[in-house]
Design a protein around this nucleic acid. Structure first.
Lengths: 123, 123
DNA sequence: CTTTTTTGTTCTCGTTACGCGTACTTTTTA
DNA sequence: TAAAAAGTACGCGTAACGAGAACAAAAAAG
Protein backbone atom coordinates (compact mmCIF):
# COMPACT_ATOMS: atom_id res chain seq x y z
CA UNK A 1 0.00 0.00 0.00
CA UNK A 2 1.64 3.23 -1.11
CA UNK A 3 0.30 6.71 -0.64
CA UNK A 4 0.37 7.76 -4.28
CA UNK A 5 -2.34 10.30 -3.76
CA UNK A 6 -0.25 12.48 -1.48
CA UNK A 7 1.89 13.92 -4.21
CA UNK A 8 -1.13 14.52 -6.45
CA UNK A 9 -2.92 16.33 -3.63
CA UNK A 10 0.13 18.47 -2.93
CA UNK A 11 0.73 19.30 -6.59
CA UNK A 12 -2.95 20.19 -7.03
CA UNK A 13 -2.49 22.86 -4.40
CA UNK A 14 0.83 23.94 -5.87
CA UNK A 15 2.69 23.41 -2.62
CA UNK A 16 6.33 22.47 -2.04
CA UNK A 17 7.60 19.70 0.23
CA UNK A 18 9.02 22.37 2.50
CA UNK A 19 5.71 24.19 2.81
CA UNK A 20 3.74 21.03 3.51
CA UNK A 21 6.20 19.70 6.07
CA UNK A 22 6.21 23.10 7.79
CA UNK A 23 2.43 23.07 7.98
CA UNK A 24 2.51 19.54 9.38
CA UNK A 25 5.29 20.39 11.81
CA UNK A 26 7.74 17.78 10.59
CA UNK A 27 11.03 17.59 8.72
CA UNK A 28 10.98 17.89 4.96
CA UNK A 29 12.71 14.54 4.65
CA UNK A 30 10.03 12.97 6.82
CA UNK A 31 7.17 14.08 4.63
CA UNK A 32 9.15 13.33 1.50
CA UNK A 33 9.54 9.80 2.84
CA UNK A 34 5.76 9.41 2.88
CA UNK A 35 5.34 10.51 -0.71
CA UNK A 36 8.12 8.30 -1.98
CA UNK A 37 6.91 5.30 -0.01
CA UNK A 38 10.17 5.14 1.95
CA UNK A 39 8.38 5.76 5.25
CA UNK A 40 4.82 5.41 6.47
CA UNK A 41 3.14 8.15 8.48
CA UNK A 42 1.74 7.69 11.95
CA UNK A 43 -2.00 7.93 12.47
CA UNK A 44 -1.60 11.43 13.83
CA UNK A 45 0.42 12.42 10.78
CA UNK A 46 -2.04 11.06 8.25
CA UNK A 47 -4.88 12.73 10.09
CA UNK A 48 -3.08 16.08 9.87
CA UNK A 49 -2.51 15.49 6.18
CA UNK A 50 -6.19 14.79 5.55
CA UNK A 51 -6.98 18.05 7.27
CA UNK A 52 -4.32 20.04 5.43
CA UNK A 53 -5.38 18.65 2.06
CA UNK A 54 -9.03 18.94 2.96
CA UNK A 55 -9.92 15.33 2.22
CA UNK A 56 -10.47 12.06 4.07
CA UNK A 57 -7.99 9.57 5.43
CA UNK A 58 -9.81 6.90 3.46
CA UNK A 59 -9.13 8.80 0.26
CA UNK A 60 -5.41 9.15 1.02
CA UNK A 61 -5.27 5.44 1.76
CA UNK A 62 -7.05 4.65 -1.48
CA UNK A 63 -10.05 3.08 0.27
CA UNK A 64 -12.42 5.33 -1.62
CA UNK A 65 -12.19 7.11 -4.94
CA UNK A 66 -14.39 10.02 -3.99
CA UNK A 67 -12.64 12.74 -2.05
CA UNK A 68 -15.71 14.85 -1.35
CA UNK A 69 -19.23 14.13 -0.21
CA UNK A 70 -22.18 15.60 -2.03
CA UNK A 71 -25.11 16.76 0.04
CA UNK A 72 -28.59 15.86 -1.06
CA UNK A 73 -31.51 18.10 -0.09
CA UNK A 74 -31.67 21.63 1.24
CA UNK A 75 -31.61 20.47 4.84
CA UNK A 76 -28.68 18.19 4.09
CA UNK A 77 -30.68 14.99 4.25
CA UNK A 78 -31.98 12.64 1.58
CA UNK A 79 -35.47 11.32 1.55
CA UNK A 80 -35.76 7.65 0.70
CA UNK A 81 -39.19 6.87 -0.69
CA UNK A 82 -40.53 4.16 -3.00
CA UNK A 83 -40.56 6.77 -5.77
CA UNK A 84 -37.04 8.01 -5.44
CA UNK A 85 -35.79 9.99 -8.42
CA UNK A 86 -32.11 9.62 -7.73
CA UNK A 87 -30.39 6.28 -7.86
CA UNK A 88 -28.88 4.71 -4.78
CA UNK A 89 -26.14 2.13 -4.98
CA UNK A 90 -24.32 -0.26 -2.67
CA UNK A 91 -20.87 -1.53 -3.59
CA UNK A 92 -21.14 0.31 -6.89
CA UNK A 93 -24.27 -1.54 -8.02
CA UNK A 94 -27.38 0.59 -8.36
CA UNK A 95 -30.34 -0.52 -6.29
CA UNK A 96 -33.39 -1.72 -8.16
CA UNK A 97 -36.84 -0.37 -7.34
CA UNK A 98 -37.67 -3.76 -5.94
CA UNK A 99 -34.70 -3.65 -3.60
CA UNK A 100 -35.66 -0.18 -2.43
CA UNK A 101 -39.23 -1.20 -1.71
CA UNK A 102 -38.09 -4.29 0.15
CA UNK A 103 -35.80 -2.20 2.25
CA UNK A 104 -38.42 0.42 3.05
CA UNK A 105 -40.93 -2.25 3.99
CA UNK A 106 -38.26 -3.82 6.16
CA UNK A 107 -37.56 -0.56 8.03
CA UNK A 108 -41.25 0.15 8.53
CA UNK A 109 -41.90 -3.32 9.88
CA UNK A 110 -38.94 -3.06 12.19
CA UNK A 111 -40.08 0.27 13.58
CA UNK A 112 -43.62 -0.97 14.10
CA UNK A 113 -42.34 -3.94 16.07
CA UNK A 114 -40.07 -1.76 18.19
CA UNK A 115 -42.95 0.61 18.94
CA UNK A 116 -45.18 -2.27 19.97
CA UNK A 117 -42.50 -3.66 22.23
CA UNK A 118 -41.87 -0.32 23.91
CA UNK A 119 -45.62 0.19 24.41
CA UNK A 120 -45.87 -3.24 26.01
CA UNK A 121 -43.11 -2.34 28.44
CA UNK A 122 -44.93 0.79 29.59
CA UNK A 123 -48.02 -1.16 30.69
CA UNK B 1 -5.96 10.61 20.00
CA UNK B 2 -7.25 7.28 21.24
CA UNK B 3 -9.26 4.77 19.33
CA UNK B 4 -12.24 4.55 21.65
CA UNK B 5 -14.55 3.47 18.89
CA UNK B 6 -12.79 0.18 18.33
CA UNK B 7 -14.19 -1.47 21.42
CA UNK B 8 -17.68 -0.17 20.70
CA UNK B 9 -17.51 -1.51 17.15
CA UNK B 10 -16.31 -4.89 18.39
CA UNK B 11 -18.94 -5.12 21.13
CA UNK B 12 -21.68 -4.16 18.66
CA UNK B 13 -20.79 -7.21 16.66
CA UNK B 14 -20.48 -9.35 19.76
CA UNK B 15 -16.93 -10.39 18.97
CA UNK B 16 -14.11 -11.34 21.34
CA UNK B 17 -10.57 -9.97 21.24
CA UNK B 18 -9.39 -13.38 20.14
CA UNK B 19 -11.80 -13.54 17.25
CA UNK B 20 -10.97 -10.06 16.01
CA UNK B 21 -7.23 -10.55 16.27
CA UNK B 22 -7.55 -13.86 14.43
CA UNK B 23 -9.48 -12.17 11.64
CA UNK B 24 -6.86 -9.44 11.46
CA UNK B 25 -4.01 -11.94 11.58
CA UNK B 26 -2.33 -10.50 14.65
CA UNK B 27 -1.73 -11.41 18.29
CA UNK B 28 -4.54 -10.89 20.76
CA UNK B 29 -2.30 -8.66 22.85
CA UNK B 30 -1.53 -6.55 19.81
CA UNK B 31 -5.15 -5.79 19.06
CA UNK B 32 -5.91 -5.37 22.76
CA UNK B 33 -3.17 -2.75 22.82
CA UNK B 34 -5.02 -0.74 20.18
CA UNK B 35 -8.28 -0.77 22.11
CA UNK B 36 -6.63 0.20 25.39
CA UNK B 37 -4.57 2.92 23.78
CA UNK B 38 -1.34 1.20 24.78
CA UNK B 39 -0.28 0.79 21.15
CA UNK B 40 -1.23 2.45 17.88
CA UNK B 41 -1.96 0.38 14.79
CA UNK B 42 -0.09 0.68 11.53
CA UNK B 43 -1.91 2.06 8.52
CA UNK B 44 -2.31 -1.45 7.18
CA UNK B 45 -3.77 -2.59 10.47
CA UNK B 46 -6.29 0.21 10.75
CA UNK B 47 -7.31 -0.34 7.16
CA UNK B 48 -7.99 -4.01 7.89
CA UNK B 49 -10.01 -3.00 10.93
CA UNK B 50 -12.14 -0.61 8.92
CA UNK B 51 -12.84 -3.44 6.52
CA UNK B 52 -13.58 -5.98 9.25
CA UNK B 53 -15.91 -3.63 11.09
CA UNK B 54 -17.41 -2.43 7.83
CA UNK B 55 -16.77 1.23 8.48
CA UNK B 56 -14.29 3.94 7.53
CA UNK B 57 -10.83 4.74 8.82
CA UNK B 58 -12.05 8.28 9.40
CA UNK B 59 -14.77 6.97 11.68
CA UNK B 60 -12.34 4.86 13.70
CA UNK B 61 -10.06 7.86 14.04
CA UNK B 62 -12.97 10.01 15.17
CA UNK B 63 -12.71 12.36 12.20
CA UNK B 64 -16.38 11.82 11.39
CA UNK B 65 -19.29 10.80 13.59
CA UNK B 66 -21.19 8.82 11.01
CA UNK B 67 -19.91 5.55 9.62
CA UNK B 68 -21.65 5.72 6.25
CA UNK B 69 -21.76 8.29 3.50
CA UNK B 70 -23.91 9.08 0.52
CA UNK B 71 -21.63 10.25 -2.23
CA UNK B 72 -22.35 11.69 -5.62
CA UNK B 73 -21.10 9.52 -8.47
CA UNK B 74 -20.04 10.75 -11.87
CA UNK B 75 -23.19 9.32 -13.45
CA UNK B 76 -25.45 11.24 -11.07
CA UNK B 77 -26.32 8.28 -8.91
CA UNK B 78 -25.55 8.09 -5.21
CA UNK B 79 -23.15 5.73 -3.57
CA UNK B 80 -23.51 4.58 0.02
CA UNK B 81 -20.03 4.27 1.45
CA UNK B 82 -18.53 3.99 4.87
CA UNK B 83 -17.83 7.61 5.56
CA UNK B 84 -20.28 10.21 6.01
CA UNK B 85 -21.72 13.61 6.09
CA UNK B 86 -25.38 13.30 5.31
CA UNK B 87 -28.46 11.43 6.44
CA UNK B 88 -30.98 9.09 4.88
CA UNK B 89 -34.54 8.93 6.09
CA UNK B 90 -37.64 6.80 5.65
CA UNK B 91 -41.09 8.34 6.29
CA UNK B 92 -39.35 11.48 7.50
CA UNK B 93 -37.47 9.66 10.24
CA UNK B 94 -33.70 9.66 9.82
CA UNK B 95 -32.17 6.22 9.62
CA UNK B 96 -30.05 5.21 12.59
CA UNK B 97 -26.55 3.87 12.04
CA UNK B 98 -27.86 0.46 12.96
CA UNK B 99 -30.60 0.68 10.36
CA UNK B 100 -28.10 1.76 7.71
CA UNK B 101 -25.86 -1.14 8.56
CA UNK B 102 -28.81 -3.52 8.38
CA UNK B 103 -29.75 -2.06 5.05
CA UNK B 104 -26.30 -2.52 3.54
CA UNK B 105 -25.93 -5.99 5.01
CA UNK B 106 -29.38 -6.87 3.70
CA UNK B 107 -28.56 -5.79 0.16
CA UNK B 108 -25.22 -7.57 0.18
CA UNK B 109 -26.73 -10.79 1.49
CA UNK B 110 -29.54 -10.66 -1.05
CA UNK B 111 -27.10 -10.20 -3.91
CA UNK B 112 -24.86 -12.97 -2.71
CA UNK B 113 -27.80 -15.36 -2.62
CA UNK B 114 -28.94 -14.31 -6.08
CA UNK B 115 -25.45 -14.81 -7.46
CA UNK B 116 -25.24 -18.29 -5.93
CA UNK B 117 -28.60 -19.24 -7.39
CA UNK B 118 -27.68 -18.01 -10.86
CA UNK B 119 -24.36 -19.86 -10.70
CA UNK B 120 -26.17 -23.06 -9.76
CA UNK B 121 -28.46 -22.67 -12.74
CA UNK B 122 -25.52 -22.45 -15.14
CA UNK B 123 -24.18 -25.86 -14.17
C1' DC C 1 -20.70 -26.09 43.58
C1' DT C 2 -16.41 -27.31 41.15
C1' DT C 3 -13.76 -27.66 37.15
C1' DT C 4 -12.59 -26.18 32.71
C1' DT C 5 -12.52 -23.07 29.13
C1' DT C 6 -12.77 -18.63 27.35
C1' DT C 7 -11.95 -13.78 27.70
C1' DG C 8 -9.47 -9.75 28.88
C1' DT C 9 -5.24 -7.35 30.90
C1' DT C 10 -0.48 -6.33 31.48
C1' DC C 11 4.39 -7.07 31.27
C1' DT C 12 9.06 -7.99 29.10
C1' DC C 13 12.02 -8.56 25.26
C1' DG C 14 13.89 -8.36 20.69
C1' DT C 15 13.66 -5.91 16.58
C1' DT C 16 11.65 -2.94 13.33
C1' DA C 17 11.40 1.22 11.26
C1' DC C 18 10.35 6.12 12.41
C1' DG C 19 11.98 10.89 12.29
C1' DC C 20 15.61 13.93 12.00
C1' DG C 21 19.78 15.96 10.23
C1' DT C 22 22.61 16.29 6.52
C1' DA C 23 24.55 16.12 2.14
C1' DC C 24 23.68 16.07 -2.54
C1' DT C 25 21.37 16.83 -7.18
C1' DT C 26 18.06 19.21 -9.83
C1' DT C 27 15.16 22.97 -10.88
C1' DT C 28 13.68 27.67 -10.60
C1' DT C 29 14.40 32.59 -10.08
C1' DA C 30 16.74 36.90 -10.55
C1' DT D 1 25.50 32.69 -14.36
C1' DA D 2 24.97 32.81 -9.59
C1' DA D 3 21.98 32.03 -5.85
C1' DA D 4 18.05 30.26 -3.85
C1' DA D 5 14.57 26.92 -3.62
C1' DA D 6 12.94 22.29 -4.39
C1' DG D 7 13.43 17.51 -4.46
C1' DT D 8 16.09 13.03 -3.35
C1' DA D 9 18.75 9.77 -0.63
C1' DC D 10 21.09 7.89 3.34
C1' DG D 11 22.94 6.93 8.10
C1' DC D 12 22.06 7.08 12.98
C1' DG D 13 19.85 6.95 17.47
C1' DT D 14 15.95 5.57 19.62
C1' DA D 15 10.93 5.34 20.25
C1' DA D 16 7.63 2.08 20.08
C1' DC D 17 5.72 -1.98 17.66
C1' DG D 18 4.37 -6.85 17.82
C1' DA D 19 4.57 -11.30 19.77
C1' DG D 20 4.54 -14.28 23.58
C1' DA D 21 3.73 -15.44 28.20
C1' DA D 22 1.69 -15.16 32.52
C1' DC D 23 -2.09 -13.95 35.14
C1' DA D 24 -6.93 -12.54 36.66
C1' DA D 25 -11.68 -12.50 35.77
C1' DA D 26 -15.66 -14.18 33.74
C1' DA D 27 -18.37 -17.65 31.41
C1' DA D 28 -19.47 -22.37 30.22
C1' DA D 29 -19.52 -27.08 31.13
C1' DG D 30 -19.90 -30.97 34.14
Amino acid sequence: MNLNRLMALRKEKGWSLQYVSDQLGMAKSTYAGYESGYRRPSLEAIKSMAELFDTSVDYILGRTDTPFAVLGQSDGSLELTPFLETALSVDGIVLSQEELQHFIAFIRAKREIEQTVSQAKNE
